[in-house]
Amino acid sequence: MKPAHIIRVLPLCAVLLFTGCSSNAPEKTDAGSGNTVVEQPASKLIEPCELITGEDAATILGEAVKPAKKSEKQVVGMKLCLYNARSDSIEFLQVTLTQDAFMQPGGIPTASIYKSLKDNFEDMRTDIEGVGDEAFISTGGIYIMSDGYYIQIGAGNTSNETVRNRLIEAGKMAVAKLNSLK
């Protein structure tokens, strides 16, 4: 298996590992009252190819891309959109969107999936400010939580500064479009 394919599959494997975890909605403490409140899941179903279009992907990658390949795993509420370069290069941009509105009944809430991944990458992540509610870069790409939606974007080796910059650019674009679609 090529290294690029391993990077593409790693986030999916990590998400599937957590399908046996608790399905309770995430809770937060309201700073003003001290009361515990349940975080409300996002309810509008959005396609990941709406967050980053083929034209957007071509701009981010700096070259033309093939039509998107799409897949989904309803058991974890995940939809995937993959853009590969038209050339023989290994450039790609993969957008994964996990959302409660697409999840099978009784599934793990999106915020819980994101938190589990964030906790598991604790020693291997770089937290990113200014992208969604919270975000980090680690193996596999940029991981973003924004208004109840979990977005993961992959573009190659996250040790490469160019790839990291692409991920942040793509993350900001995806969050902006998410905000306009809700």
Rank of each mutant, 00 (worst) to 15 (best):
D100C: 03
F102M: 06
A68S: 12
V65S: 08
I60S: 01
V65N: 06
G107V: 10
S89Q: 05
S116N: 14
N84W: 06
I60L: 15
E91K: 06
L117K: 06
K70V: 10
L80V: 15
G106M: 06
L97W: 07
P67Y: 13
Q104D: 07
I90D: 15
M78H: 00
I108H: 03
S89D: 00
K73S: 12
G62L: 04
T96H: 01
M103S: 14
V65C: 06
V75N: 11
D88T: 13
I113N: 02
E72I: 00
K79M: 05
C81M: 02
G107A: 14
E63D: 00
V65H: 06
S71K: 11
F102H: 09
F121W: 13
L97Y: 05
T110I: 14
P109E: 01
V65T: 13
V75I: 07
N84E: 14
Q74M: 12
M103N: 02
M78Y: 00
S112V: 13
S87P: 06
P109L: 01
E72F: 07
I108K: 10
P67D: 12
M78I: 00
K115I: 02
P67N: 11
S112A: 14
T96P: 00
M78A: 00
G62R: 05
L93A: 11
V76W: 01
P67R: 09
E91M: 00
D88N: 14
K66D: 09
L61W: 02
F92M: 13
K79I: 03
S87N: 13
S87Y: 08
F102P: 01
E63C: 01
K73Q: 15
E72Q: 10
S112R: 14
N120V: 05
S87I: 12
V95G: 02
P67W: 11
V65Y: 04
T96V: 06
I108F: 08
V95Y: 03
E72L: 03
R86F: 06
E91I: 00
Y114E: 05
P105K: 13
Y83A: 09
A85Q: 10
Q94C: 04
L93P: 09
Q74S: 15
K70F: 03
L97T: 07
K70H: 11
P67K: 05
L93I: 15
Q104M: 10
D88L: 09
S116G: 09
F92Q: 11
K70T: 12
M103T: 15
E72K: 11
K118Q: 12
D119H: 05
K115V: 03
V65P: 02
Q99L: 06
K70N: 11
S71R: 14
I108S: 02
M103F: 00
Q104P: 00
